[in-house]
């Protein structure tokens, strides 16, 4: 709030005041009142006016300034009413009430959306669980009744399962729900489970799964981490090069900041122009357009999940040479102390 602008806002008052003095002067002149008397009244009036303006200005200023500061400081500006107290002057009270009503209506609106989101997520969760039952039956049937298309049916079922999982984890990480459980997890076990689950695809595409001996434990949710690794490995399978010795090399090492898990493949790589966008939603890039199965969701979901879990995921690549994804599990000093 600027005092001069505030005064300018009261220009009308000053014009009336000026008119008042002109009339007063004429009146005093007509009644032959001494000129000194007029001066005295003029000084007194001006003094009182300025005093009352100052008082009014500062009363308002403390409220508006607090309001303005809080709005620009808060990252959720709509919470501003929680941060300031109700003002003393009428106009401010009025404004406060209006802000309060607007806020209330917005919250009701947001709450409505939140409820809808939650019920939608619950529905997705339920649907995924339901759809997994026939999937399980079909997988068992293929195993129990061998036929002509076993391998193809199994791999199509696996694809179906992957897509269903993607829906589930997308719903989980897009919503504010806390569906994960952070525990101390054996990295080697997670890598083994991912390998076992994707064994057929890896063998089928003749990609060697090379795993260094790893003996690290990290703080994470093992189910989520398995899903993240699967997205990375699925990409390696999808974007392999037509060379005889394709491989995925998984290794882990300790760094200053924590434990790093690295997944390296010698596939077609990612063009330098695309690499900064691979974690973006629905980004398919030059490689994606070559492969019809690309949805551009896998790495996006993997990244959002890593963010939720507090891991740092990054990617580097050289076109037609390699792609290397690294996940950093930061050291948790608080947990170390507790342990």
């Amino acid at each position: 709030m600027n005092f001069f602008l505030y005064l300018k806002d009261h220009l009308f008052f000053f014009l009336f005041r000026l008119l008042f003095f002109v009339l007063l002067f004429l009146l005093f002149f007509a009644f032959k009142v001494p000129f000194d008397c007029f001066i005295a009244i003029f000084i007194l009036c001006t003094f009182v006016d300025f005093f009352s303006f100052f008082y009014d200005y500062f009363r308002r200023r403390s409220f508006y300034k607090a309001l303005y500061l809080q709005v620009s400081k808060l990252d959720q500006a709509y919470l501003v009413l929680e941060m300031i107290s109700q003002p003393e002057f009428y106009e401010g009270k009025f404004l406060w009430q209006i802000l309060y009503d607007i806020n209330k209506s917005m919250r009701e609106n947001v709450l409505g959306y939140e409820r809808r989101m939650q019920s939608y997520q619950a529905y997705i969760e339920m649907w995924v669980h339901e759809v997994k039952i026939p999937l399980a039956t079909l997988t068992l049937m293929v195993k129990n009744h061998p036929g002509k298309f076993d391998k193809k049916v199994t791999s199509e079922l696996k694809r179906l399962e992957d897509y269903v999982d993607q829906v589930l984890y997308y719903a989980r990480c897009e919503n504010a729900s806390e569906d994960y459980l952070i525990q101390e997890v054996d990295l080697a076990k997670v890598i083994k489970n991912v390998g076992l689950k994707n064994m057929n695809d890896l063998l089928e595409s003749k990609i060697d799964y090379l795993v260094d001996p790893i003996s690290f434990h990290v703080l994470t949710d093992s189910k989520w981490l398995e899903f993240i690794l699967e997205q990375i490995i699925n990409n390696s399978i999808k974007y392999k090069r037509d060379i005889p010795n394709s491989y995925i090399h998984i290794t882990a090492f300790e760094e200053e900041n924590g434990i790093v898990l690295s997944i390296l493949d010698n596939g077609i790589g990612i063009k330098a122009s695309d690499i900064n966008q691979v974690f973006h939603k629905s980004f398919t890039g030059t490689n994606g357009r070559k492969v019809s199965k690309s949805t551009g969701m896998g790495l996006f979901i993997a990244k959002s999940m890593c963010e939720k879990l507090g891991h740092h995921i990054s990617i580097e690549s050289k076109d037609q040479e390699y792609t290397k994804v690294t996940i950093l599990f930061s050291r948790n000093q608080y947990y170390d102390v507790l342990k």
Binding site: V128, E130, K132
Partner: peptide, 23 residues
């Protein structure tokens, strides 16, 4: 088909010997 880590941890704490998710 319940596949969260929490479900698994609960089941193990109730005395399950292993936990496998469908499919």
């Amino acid at each position: 088909s319940k596949n969260t880590q929490l479900d698994e941890a609960l089941s193990i704490s109730y005395g399950a010997d292993d936990y496998i998710t469908k499919p």
